[in-house]
């Protein structure tokens, strides 16, 4: 008995160091099952071959990637359709993330100045709004921007539309696609798309900025004020530099989140300004059953997103060092 006890006691240390703990094994199994395998599948499918008039089959072809840049009919004709969509994916995500952070920042800053009780009420409210799904939010904005029930109705009933027609600005709105001959219209428009997208992530922006702003040492602000700095100077030279990193981080996070926005774009964007997310969905679930091309587009979107983040980080790091 004692001999057995001895031998089991001695090497006990060694295996635990060599073998990962069960917890780590479970973690790795989860990562592999839910991240590596699905991504590997998407990558593998992206090299598949479409069969005209039917579905697709496993293969190893670069056609889907080539098609992304020049179109399926190349070299007879060339289309920039998918590059155009990639551009709008990035454009919307950047603009909407910036708008959300720029408007959420003053709000979050003022929020930290409120009493504890008021702060927690606001935070609970914001957390609650996060439970609203994209579909729900888009439905709401759809009603708010509709001709009979929303903003166009308000503008018509208050006489603003008639006034716009009188002064001649209405023609300009028609030119911009923001009016039909009768009323102003926001569906479909870039205004509505970007508005809804930034609205979608606005609570996230506040929640992400709040911790950094609430940890801000108020004595530095007060010191700057007593030395004669105006509120704007304080904001520019004290507050903003302190929260620069969380601020940039929030923009990045929202950017990534917004890259895949689907519902807002399908409902509010004109087809000439739609994103790659729509194109991926149409390829995979649409009647052509072209999963390989959908997968190739998804891979390109992912790579572009990663490149944007890397570029953003490099830029921030470079501008950050002298300061």
């Amino acid at each position: 008995m004692s001999a057995i006890e001895d031998t089991s006691a001695l090497p006990a240390e060694a295996p635990t160091r060599r073998l990962p703990s069960p917890r780590m094994l479970i973690l790795w199994a989860l990562i592999v099952t839910f991240c590596v395998v699905p991504f590997g599948l998407v990558l593998a499918i992206s090299f598949g071959q479409k069969i005209e008039g039917a579905a697709w089959e496993w293969a190893f072809t670069g056609e889907n990637y080539l098609r992304f840049f020049v179109g399926a009919d190349w070299p007879e004709s060339r289309t920039t359709l998918y590059l155009n969509r990639l551009w709008y994916s990035i454009y919307y995500a950047v603009i909407a993330a910036l708008i959300a952070v720029l408007t959420a920042f003053p709000f979050a800053y003022l929020l930290t100045r409120l009493s504890r009780r008021a702060q927690s009420r606001w935070l609970v409210f914001l957390l609650a709004t996060m439970s609203l799904s994209e579909v729900f939010i888009v439905m709401g904005w759809d009603i708010l921007l509709s001709n009979r029930s929303g903003l166009p109705m308000v503008l018509r009933e208050t006489g603003v539309t008639a006034w716009l027609k009188d002064v001649g600005w209405f023609a300009q709105l028609r030119e911009w696609g923001l009016a039909n001959p009768r009323d102003v219209k926001f569906k479909t428009s870039m205004v509505a798309t970007v508005l809804t997208m930034s609205y979608l992530v606005w609570p996230y922006a506040v929640i992400l900025l709040y911790p950094a702003l609430s940890r801000l040492d108020q004595s530095t602000v007060e010191a700057a004020r007593t030395m004669g700095a105006g509120p704007w100077t304080v904001m520019r030279t004290v507050v903003l530099p302190t929260v620069r990193l969380p601020l940039v981080g929030t923009v990045f996070l929202l950017f990534v989140f917004l890259l895949g926005t689907y519902v807002s774009v399908t409902v509010f964007a004109d087809p000439s300004q739609q994103t790659l997310a729509i194109s991926v969905y149409e390829a995979v679930r649409g009647s052509t059953l072209n999963a390989p091309f959908g997968a190739a587009q998804a891979v390109i979107l992912l790579i572009t997103g990663a490149l944007c983040l890397w570029l953003g980080r490099t830029l921030v790091a470079r501008t950050g060092t002298p300061a």
Partner: peptide, 14 residues
């Protein structure tokens, strides 16, 4: 199908 879809989508999408 690929040609019709892409020609149509290009018309709408650009």
């Amino acid at each position: 199908e690929t040609f019709i879809k892409e020609t149509w989508d290009t018309m709408l999408g650009t």
